Simulated assay, not measured.
Amino acid sequence: MEPPEMMRESPLSRILRGLALLVVALFFLFPIFWVLLMSFQTNEQILRIPPSLFFEPTLGNYVALVSGKLETAAGTLEIPFMRNLGNSVLLSAVSVALSLVLGVPAAYAFARFRFRLGENIAFTLLSFRFAPPLLVLLPLSLYFQDLGLNDTYTGLIWVYQLISLPLILWIVRGYFEDISPDIEHAYRIDGHSWWRTFTRIALPLARPGIAAAALLAFIFCWNNFIFALILASADKQPVTVGALAFVTASGIQYGQIAAAVILSVTPTLLLALYAQRYLVEGLSLGAVKG
């Protein structure tokens, strides 16, 4: 075994590692930093050649988004960006919550019980993620018209289950499978019911995995574009579709687009920061076997 002084990292190694991490961080964060700078510039400042890091900042882009009034060469354009942002929060949050209610018990059932055609059913649910959205849009739009779900929040939340439910089902199923069933058996021997065992033992142990799956499902729902574009009108469309309004007849409003990107990224970023500790626990779940 090497002595402790031989295992210590040299100062030069720490410096080189720090520089390498700094280069990688700058490489991935620079586009976000540049978009942030663009959000405080006018179109003239953004399009000037050569570009410059020094400029007189303005809050006009954010004011236009919050007020819903975009000044263009052709006049004032009404843009309900904040309504679109609220639609994204509503659709993504409710869709993920419904998927958790349906998907987590189903994932536990697939992980703990073996029944006929169980794997086929699970794979069929996963196959919904493989199918391109355009494949199901036409029959969905026809069904929604017959059922009165076209251009409704209920219809969009239902469609979003094609995105979030299979993802949560398969990810959470893997975490339940990593949990030893002996813990649950010991709890059941004490006379507790299956439901109490599920809520008191299985759910707390799989909480990091559930949080990770919910975060990923929320991001996928948030980024969805095609479903809301076809199945909803302007007052119910999320921010991904509402951003099309910045491409006007008088040109592309780059400053407003950059501000819209910053505002639309903020909710998912805050959610990821909040769930960070669960993600770390989820990645390490099952790494140490007793």
Rank of each mutant, 00 (worst) to 15 (best):
S13H: 06
S127T: 14
F110I: 02
P139S: 02
F81S: 00
E78A: 06
S52W: 03
L216N: 14
P3E: 09
R129S: 15
A74N: 12
V63N: 05
V172E: 09
S180K: 09
V104R: 13
T268L: 14
A228W: 06
I262K: 02
L100I: 11
P50M: 05
F128V: 05
L167V: 03
I171T: 10
A131D: 01
S99R: 10
I157W: 00
V261C: 09
A107T: 03
A131P: 03
G155R: 13
R17H: 13
K289N: 10
L16C: 12
I46K: 14
V89R: 03
T152Y: 02
L138M: 11
I189H: 05
D235S: 13
L169K: 12
L126S: 12
L29R: 12
F81K: 00
V239Y: 05
G290R: 15
L216Y: 14
E281M: 10
L263D: 01
Q276N: 13
N84P: 01
L26T: 11
V104W: 11
G18H: 07
G86T: 04
L271Y: 10
P31I: 08
G174M: 06
V159E: 07
G251A: 04
E2W: 09
R129P: 04
F123R: 15
A272C: 07
F220E: 12
G86A: 13
E119N: 14
S264P: 05
R116A: 09
F123H: 15
Y175V: 02
V136C: 03
P166H: 00
L167I: 01
A97H: 04
A217H: 08
V247A: 15
L271R: 07
L244W: 11
P238A: 11
E177A: 15
M82W: 06
L26E: 04
I163K: 08
Y175R: 07
I121N: 04
V101K: 06
G148W: 03
T197E: 02
V172W: 02
M6N: 11
L140N: 08
L149V: 04
T197R: 08
V288A: 11
E281V: 01
F220Q: 13
F115A: 04
E177W: 06
L167P: 01
A74P: 00
L90W: 15
L169V: 10
M38G: 12
A131R: 02
A206K: 07
F33K: 04
Y108R: 14
R112I: 02
L126E: 07
N61C: 06
T240P: 08
Q253I: 00
A228C: 07
P11K: 13
L22D: 05
L140V: 11
A275E: 02
L205D: 00
V247K: 08
Q256S: 14
A122F: 01
L117N: 09
E71G: 06
S92D: 12
P57W: 03
N61S: 05
T76M: 13
P3G: 03
M7Y: 00
L285G: 00
I252V: 15
A272N: 05
L100S: 07
E184N: 09
Q253C: 01
P50E: 05
V159N: 10
T76G: 00
A260L: 09
A202G: 00
G155H: 11
G75Q: 10
